[in-house]
Amino acid sequence: MADMVSIPHSQPQQHQFNPYTENGGTILAIAGADFSVIAGDTRQSEGYSIQTRYAPKVFRLTDKAVLAVNGFAADGNMFVKKVRQRLEWYRHAHAKDMPIRAIARLIQTMLYSRRFFPYYVYNILGGIEEDGTGAVYSFDPVGSYEREACRAAGAAQSLVQPFLDNQIYFKNQTPAPGTSFPGHLSLSTVLSLVIDSFTSATERHIEVGDGLEMYIVLAKNSPSIQSLRDIRGMSELTATEDGERVFVVRRDLKKD
């Protein structure tokens, strides 16, 4: 073993090319009973430089699945492109969109296939399950994944996740005597939590800011649509009739 370590360098040590960088930003998704919210900021940075104030990190895959990608931007964009390509072949073969739990497994295999030269990205997949429930799947760069109620990832994960643990899982809280915590939060509560998470992350983390993109996926005939009535900066992206519905809300975040 010692022999292996002590190979003498006859040449001057060359600068090793590092194929990765870190482009900042944060993503977040929360699942409700019959909806899912997937959000990300739009700043892209490297070191202390802001490269652009608008580079989307959240992508609509189908009318029931939205993918947020954070980490090394070049890997992220390529990964989304490849996932979309696989979904297109699925559509060719089956004339319908791939269900979200299948997309989640697909993403796992795609990430793990690069186990020894990973996509340096944290993925969060949100949407509506075939049974109509809201879903969030989160992944590590090499494909470990699980279904959860909420997840934050990226630069400000350490700021946002504890806040979510407290507000969504009610960690470190005790219900008032004779009451209990709600099983699922309403859409309007979730939207407020997401917006507050990002304004706070923008305040405290230099890599978060500029803009917020928040995708909302609603199950078929979801009554949650009521809470979207007067949301500022919202537009609908739904492609199908009488199915799930997709909305996006765009907001400004502080640019400093």
């Binding site: 559509r91 319908k96 739904t238 492609a239």
Partner: peptide, 8 residues
């Protein structure tokens, strides 16, 4: 027509 899975 109804809307399909493809874009408009």
């Amino acid at each position: 027509e109804k809307k399909g899975v493809q874009p408009e």
